[in-house]
Design a protein around this nucleic acid. Sequence first.
DNA 1: TTTAAATGTAAGTAATTACTTACTTACATT
DNA 2: AATGTAAGTAAGTAATTACTTACATTTAAA
Lengths: 203, 203
Amino acid sequence: MSTEQRILEAALRIFASEGYTGATTRRIAEEANVAEVTLFRKFKSKENLLREVLLKNRAAFSSLDHLFQPEKDADIETDLRTLGKNVSKVMRENKEDGRRRMLMFMLFEEGRRRPEVAEILSSVFQMNITRLSEYFELQIKNGKMRNINPRSASITFISYFVYTSLVRGVFGDSFVGENDEEIERFIDIFTKGILKVDDVKTR
Amino acid sequence: MSTEQRILEAALRIFASEGYTGATTRRIAEEANVAEVTLFRKFKSKENLLREVLLKNRAAFSSLDHLFQPEKDADIETDLRTLGKNVSKVMRENKEDGRRRMLMFMLFEEGRRRPEVAEILSSVFQMNITRLSEYFELQIKNGKMRNINPRSASITFISYFVYTSLVRGVFGDSFVGENDEEIERFIDIFTKGILKVDDVKTR
DNA sequence: TTTAAATGTAAGTAATTACTTACTTACATT
DNA sequence: AATGTAAGTAAGTAATTACTTACATTTAAA
């Protein structure tokens, strides 16, 4: 792994966990196992490092395509259950590949303070909503879903995972219990809310 | 208004918007219109000021009781619509009484970094979930709701409002459209998901 | 093996931060 | 008039921060 790469990854971790102001260049350099001066050699300034971190990692934030590959024959509930588990898994990762989670933290924290952060992440962030909306639109057209606003459905769906992930960031696993079961419950509520009444499995 | 009160309110605003590290005592003093030395006279340290801000304001975070007063004759959908609008209104306030929103920001940001923040806000934060769960439990017992996990329903409900509020903090109103309409849509989806099939109004 | 490039070490700069100290002013109380 | 209280001003301390410079060492390339 190149020195730049090491710095970029360390910076993402520290920015996400300490916020921009709290992330000192010294701390980032330590995390990357380089001399602080090397960081400035490679990236010139802290600001620029932040920008590069975001630009280099933004793609990870629009990875719904990767996580959501509906099968032709599966029903909506199964599709969403699979997606829910994938999203949840990805949002629980706090090691190597926890980039989505880290970017989420950065978006909601620094995105409020630094317009550039919001800008860089905005389009990829919204893409997730768009992709899911498209899926819902199709299901509505195919008569499998109620005629509801697809975007609202997407927001409802995604809000659950963002929220539980944020709360987990604060309280750990004490707040949300056994994960798969919780997701099943959410999917149950959600799908009952969006499917046509005919398709609702009576319990 | 007393000098202490002015400082406490200014501190809440600045801590919420800049984060703890980003909130300088100078900035807070300016906001409160006092000399910086006065801040230290009254609160001794920045840390202590943060603690006092949280302790003095935590009650505002458990205000579901205040926002949610179900009427005896109203149905669930109406109850939740009312609650949704109240919560949303409160989460949109970014002036004087925007304490809940500010505390939410602080919980999700500083709560990750400072165990004390999480601790102080934890019980009041969870009370909201508990209150709503109790309401759902009652409705289930009264046969008005499916036999689902009340806590999961509460989390689903609250996650929508937290999420939209956070997103609004980053993107303003461009992300979520006309508010009342959006809430109606969410309530529609949500109630369809939790009510007994008999009670679902066919559309 | 030699040369060039990359990186480290050490020291430093200028600005900023939480906090302190000494003195002053204005008003209230004794 | 003397004293106390509350808050401001100005100056300062010690530590920290982003960043720079000069030289040394290590690594990579020729």
